[in-house]
Nucleic acid binder design. Structure first.
Length: 413
RNA sequence: GUGGGCGUAGCUCAACGGUUAGAGCACCGGACUGUGGCUCCGGGGGCUGGGGGUUCAAGUCCCCUCGUCCACCCCA
């Protein structure tokens, strides 16, 4: 049996890599314009980091982590998400001595799940984190930045859903109220939600089972149970989104899968992706830095799923410089070609040489199949006159061009 | 972890249990000795995912296994 890639770990091939590059380049450019800097963090961390940040009873920690013991006996985990490593680095390098840190990253994450459309075991996220800014305006601006990115790379039909999960003051009380409510409608809940009543009651609001949707219809709403500071914060976020011209739907039933979120949470979905329709999500995590041993630091962050965005914008097409194929006829032309190609590439021309030695006909055919916009031929005639024949494969017109003028001719798409 | 669909050429797919498993596209060559796309002709390509079973005979039926896709769970 030939060796194949690991289940859920995919190759990204030419054709797709251009789309990925396009997404990343634009994200970096847009984030940079909002004052973000790149940070690179390892893909493996001590397991404890994720246990303490994501939450010990979340699905991610309970059944989705790639955890292993290294040769030294330490328990390591391939990062299932990017925020915890960034926060760890933030504390470790005492970046909190800056008033505010705006960081972005891009790279693979790992979760042991059954693969399906838009969901893989190794998947890529572009994330951004604002550390040290408590302002609701930071939340709104980050969302504005994200929507701007999606607009610029032609992600159509992106819908923003927002919610507030409250904070350490108001969430526990709300949880209790919700527990009581759920206990009262026990007989109508699915098995899963029955377990959730104690473990994670908020999740029941998110359940897709018809019975649960029905049963939780009149459940107490989190946004109506926020304490005054949280309510003010949420109002400000919405106000500033409005001022930015961004439409957001308040969805009090939207719950996140990570424990560290406080106050604002959001999710951006796009139709046409099947059931894995979230293309970006995130929120505020005001308690995490302190939880991990740093000073109290309010933060806001999000992550974008690159595969999912790529699935959406794929058909758009991405610009590439026109390709030229160089065909040398005879030994002398081949020698001269080395010098010419070097000079042309110095000037940024995208050109490849056809090293085959078939008939010119077959080599022209190869150039065409390679997707060449131009065929550049150097034969005996051209060698004598110091020219090359540049044939435009689209219009079929051709002309002899002096060697040093060829790049100008070829550069025109 | 649960459920369902699908595994035949590089790709998309045919083949009633019955000759040597085919087609289109792609690839290579020729018709056309320095000019691609269109057309025509020819060529290379397959342990029919793997293993076991039923049968005179299995790509086809049965069992197991692996892979893959979609959905659930959950999430980017």
């Amino acid at each position: 049996m030939e060796i194949t890639a690991v289940r859920g770990f995919n190759d990204v091939l030419p054709g797709d890599t251009e789309v990925w590059r396009h997404i990343e380049d634009n994200a970096f450019r847009v984030f940079s314009s909002y004052g973000f800097s790149e940070i690179k963090v390892p893909i493996a961390e001590k397991t404890e980091l994720f246990l303490r940040s994501i939450g010990a009873t979340t699905d991610i920690v309970e059944k989705e982590m790639y955890t292993f013991t290294d040769r030294h006996g330490d328990s390591l985990t391939l990062r299932p998400e990017g925020t915890a490593p960034v926060v760890r680095a933030y504390i470790e390098h005492k970046l909190y001595t800056n008033p505010v840190s705006k960081l972005y990253y891009s790279g693979p994450m790992f979760r042991y799940e059954r693969p399906q459309k838009g969901r893989y075991r190794q998947f890529y996220q572009i994330g951004a984190e604002i550390l040290g800014d408590p302002s609701p305006r930071a939340d709104a601006e980050a969302l504005q930045m994200l929507m701007r990115l999606f607009e610029e790379i032609n992600v159509r039909g992106a819908e923003l859903n927002i919610n507030s999960l409250g904070d350490a003051h108001c969430r526990p009380a709300y949880k209790e109220r919700l527990k009581n409510y759920l206990s009262g409608v026990k007989d109508r809940l699915c098995d899963n939600c029955l377990r959730r009543i104690d473990a994670n009651p908020l999740r029941a609001l998110d359940c897709k089972s018809p019975g649960c949707i029905e049963a939780t219809h009149d459940a107490p709403s989190i946004v109506e149970s926020l304490c005054a500071p949280c309510a003010v914060h949420f109002d400000k976020v919405r106000e500033h989104l409005g001022l930015s011209g961004i439409e957001a739907t308040v969805n009090p039933r939207m719950v996140r899968g990570l424990d560290y979120y406080t106050r604002t949470t959001f999710e951006i979905t796009s139709a046409g992706l099947g059931s894995q329709n979230a293309i970006a999500a995130g929120g505020r995590y005001d308690g995490l830095v302190e939880e991990l041993g740093g000073p109290a630091t309010p933060c806001f962050g999000f992550a974008i799923g690159i595969e999912r965005v790529a699935l959406i914008i794929k058909e758009g097409g991405v610009y590439r410089k026109p390709l030229a194929v160089f065909i040398a006829l005879g030994a002398e032309a081949e020698k001269k070609g080395i010098e010419l190609l070097k000079a042309w590439r110095d000037r940024g021309i995208r050109i490849v040489e056809d090293f085959s030695d078939g008939s010119l006909k077959s080599r022209m055919k190869r150039a065409d199949r390679a997707g060449a916009r131009y065929a550049v031929i150097l034969g005996e005639d051209e060698l004598k006159s110091g020219t090359v024949t540049v044939k435009d494969m689209k219009s079929a017109g051709q002309e002899k061009v002096a060697w040093d003028l060829a790049p100008d001719r070829i550069a025109i798409g």
